[in-house]
Design a protein around this nucleic acid. Structure first.
Length: 548
RNA sequence: GGCCUUGUGGUCAAGCGGUUAAGACGGAGCCCUCUCAAGGCUCAAUCCCGGGUUCGAUUCCCGGCAGGGUCACCA
């Protein structure tokens, strides 16, 4: 068979360059020894999720801790799944979480020498190599229809055989020259398949950077490398792109492990050096007692927007992911409490081999700890940002008064005290902590645990002596005095020794005041709350509670 | 089902033939205290099962069992 003729019939393109030219166009990168080139290669199908961020973080950390390159390539070979704006969304999302690309699609960078970074724009490179494979007898056209393929698969399943296009099932593999040209003449659509040289008899031990040694069999499937629309499949594009873009380390989800044999064969027949691979395990969750992979459809917590809406501090999400990615990260952080997480020596060897359950409790803990490191200005800026986007109209109005809000932040976060408070876990719930400082949303439930007469006595007696200029000691002395007057123990120690002798304790008196002023039995330092509210509103609330 | 892969407290996990089997989150309790939060202290809780190998297995081997992944002209 005249393979040269077949190749130019199948791939008639006249804009293809000799293969050496492509090699020259994409020379070796000039990087330091040990520098890793990693990439995020999403399909523009929609929005990036937590799983993507998880592996992107590994990519980004590895590249940037080795003085390497982290780039963005768009795998848009499936036109059916393209969504407008997806690329910008990916970049924006990653930036929001503090990850930046050095190079790639839609990235403004002088390093963009390995593009185009959209696969659809790289068609001629792929086609040149497919053509070469055909000429070398390593690829062939296949005219099988979808129905035929489905029928074969059904038959294979029936007989409990391995499904796919291989061996005796590879009908078009041995088509005669005449049959091929007849089919072509009839205008039948075709795909190009790899003529696999492998055999499942042969085992290959492969070293994965995350999973360690993995035993796989050689590929024997005549996989499609060029689809009928002339665009390559993922497998082929992966081999070509990661070769020419000089990716040194491919980090991707473990769902790719099963197609690794295909990639191994592709790199081999193409004569390319194999990059190293690290297959990450998926984030899991427990659903009805069953552990399963986090799903885009079923699990809102997989969406990155979920975290933005819930008001998680972006760096907290990243740090949480770091704790799963490298379990020694937390220990390092305890030893270096003020260091930037980027100073941590990220190591691919420390990455876990099995899928971690997504743990919202842990995230919450990381998040509140992270928020507790911010100044009042930073806290204000963060909460304000959330309020502007997701808050109610009242929230927006409240947060317009920066000075007032900052006073509350200093109280709620314990800024300036010995120990920071960690009341704010995330903005969505944290903003609610401000509500009782605003009359328009203050809506107390007076759940007093004492007799009306005692409550009224406490409230009115305290109102009579309250002075907003009192410091905490003076203030508390007055609370104690009121307690004593109404038959409550002024000292906790006295009360504990002899509880029956009193109606309650000074703590209960404080509770009554607190409920009247904040509407809740718990709050941060009441004295400060009153001072922030100011004398008039404090007294008004005290009186309102008496009336109620 | 075939193939690949994983299996240490509820969760994330150190551990690499001999350990009282770290630590963190979560839980319980105590202390502190005007409540809450924070903080300090304490407690409960783990090596999937069965065979080997070995003086000795959580660690090595084999077999079960259980989980996960994957079997497209999607990536």
């Amino acid at each position: 068979m005249d393979l040269k003729k077949l190749a130019s019939t199948l791939i008639p393109d006249n804009d293809l360059l000799p293969l050496e030219e492509y090699e020259k166009m994409y020379p070796e990168r000039q990087l330091n020894k040990g520098a890793e080139v990693t990439r995020l290669a999403p399909s523009p199908t929609g929005f990036i999720h937590l799983g993507n961020l998880y592996s992107a973080l590994a990519d980004e950390r590895i590249a940037h801790t080795t003085d390497g390159i982290f780039y963005l390539r768009i795998e848009d070979t499936d036109l059916k799944r393209k969504v407008d704006g997806a690329v910008e969304s990916v970049i924006r999302s990653l930036n929001y979480f503090g990850l930046n690309f050095d190079e790639g699609a839609e990235i403004d960078s002088p390093l963009n020498n390995y593009g185009p970074y959209y696969q659809r724009q790289r068609a001629s490179i792929y086609r040149a190599y497919v053509k070469d494979l055909i000429e070398r007898g390593l690829a062939y056209p296949c005219f099988c229809t979808e129905d035929e393929l489905n029928a074969v698969r059904a038959e294979q399943t029936e007989r409990k055989e391995i499904t796919g296009y291989y061996g005796k099932y590879a009908k078009c593999r041995n088509l005669s020259e005449q049959e091929i040209y007849d089919n072509l003449a009839q205008g039948k659509p075709f795909v190009i398949r790899l003529k696999s040289q492998g055999s499942t008899e042969n085992k290959i031990t492969f070293k994965d950077r995350i999973k360690g040694d993995i035993t796989v069999t050689e590929n024997d499937q005549d996989v499609v490398i060029l689809k009928s629309d002339g665009i390559p499949t993922y497998h082929f594009a992966h081999a070509i792109d990661d070769h020419f873009m000089h990716t040194t380390l491919v980090i991707r989800g473990e769902e790719w492990l099963s197609s690794l044999p295909i990639h191994l064969e592709l790199f081999k027949v193409l004569g390319f050096k194999l990059p190293s691979y690290g297959h990450t395990c998926s984030l899991m969750k427990v659903d009805n007692g069953v552990k399963r992979k986090l799903s885009k459809r079923k699990d809102p917590e997989l969406s990155l927007d979920y975290y933005r809406q819930a008001g998680y501090y972006p760096k907290a999400v990243v740090k949480y992911l770091m704790t799963i990615l490298n379990s020694n990260f937390e220990e390092w952080e305890r030893k270096n409490p003020t260091a930037d997480y980027r100073d941590f020596k990220f190591s691919i060897d420390k990455m876990g081999k099995s899928g971690a359950l997504f743990d919202i409790d842990k995230l919450n803990d990381v998040s509140k700890a992270e928020l507790a490191t911010l100044s009042e200005d930073e806290t204000y800026a963060f909460l304000k940002g959330w309020v502007d986007e997701f808050g109610t109209e009242q929230d927006k109005a409240h947060f317009a008064d920066a000075d007032y809000i900052k006073k509350i932040i200093i109280l709620i976060c314990g800024i300036g005290g010995k120990k920071r408070r960690k009341d704010i876990v995330r903005a969505e719930t944290g903003v609610r902590l401000f509500d009782y400082f605003f009359d328009d949303v203050f809506n107390p439930e007076y759940a007093f645990r004492f007799e009306k007469g005692d409550v009224t006595a406490v409230l009115s007696k305290f109102a009579a002596v309250y002075d907003e200029n009192d410091d905490n000691n003076a203030w508390f002395a007055k609370v104690k005095a009121v307690a004593a007057e109404v038959g409550f123990a002024a000292e906790m120690s006295e009360y504990k020794q002899n509880p029956e002798a009193f109606k309650g304790s000074v703590a209960d008196v404080a509770e009554i005041l607190r409920i009247a002023v904040t509407g809740m039995p718990n709050s941060p330092d009441l004295c400060t709350v009153m001072r922030i509210l100011g004398k008039d509103r404090t007294l008004a609330r005290l009186n309102a509670a008496i009336q109620a």
